[in-house]
């Protein structure tokens, strides 16, 4: 059952992105920004976590899930360390994601050359 929910919710979030691309001519960069920011706000409001509990990877793999991770991280750090947590929580929570993206992108750039379409 968890695969079905992951598929439906994950696919559904992507459809929202697709409608935005086709209807508003937003570029992919803007979509990425919008989804992370919205995910972070929803996470802060405590609305996104129930979706994660329900759909698992269907809610964590799309970028709003990344935003939710930021919100969760920052609230956790504020709980632990007070106001200073607002400055440290975001990067702590997203450290693994951003660092793996940098590392694997760098390695890919070492190995591969640009390809024509």
């Amino acid at each position: 059952m968890d695969y079905l929910y992951a598929f439906l919710v994950g696919g559904g979030i992507c459809v929202i992105g697709q409608i935005l691309i086709d209807k508003t001519k937003m570029t992919s960069a803007r979509i990425l920004v919008l989804f992370v920011v919205v995910g972070c706000i929803l996470g802060g409001l405590g609305i996104y976590q129930p979706l994660v509990d329900f759909a698992g990877a269907g809610a964590t793999v799309p970028l709003p899930g990344f935003g939710n991770t930021l919100a969760k991280g920052v609230m956790y750090e504020v709980d632990q360390n007070g106001l200073i947590g607002a400055l440290t929580g975001g990067f702590k929570a997203s450290a693994a994601g951003i660092t793996s993206a940098i590392v694997f992108a760098f390695l890919a750039a070492l190995v591969f050359n640009p390809k024509e379409k």
Binding site: I21, K25, T27, S28, P114, K115, E116, K117
Partner: peptide
């Protein structure tokens, strides 16, 4: 040149986007 123009005016060639 398609690739040089994409790189200069639009996005890196490997970026997965759709063309209108």
């Amino acid at each position: 040149h398609f690739c040089a123009a994409e790189k200069q005016f639009r996005f890196p060639l490997g970026l997965g986007t759709q063309r209108p």
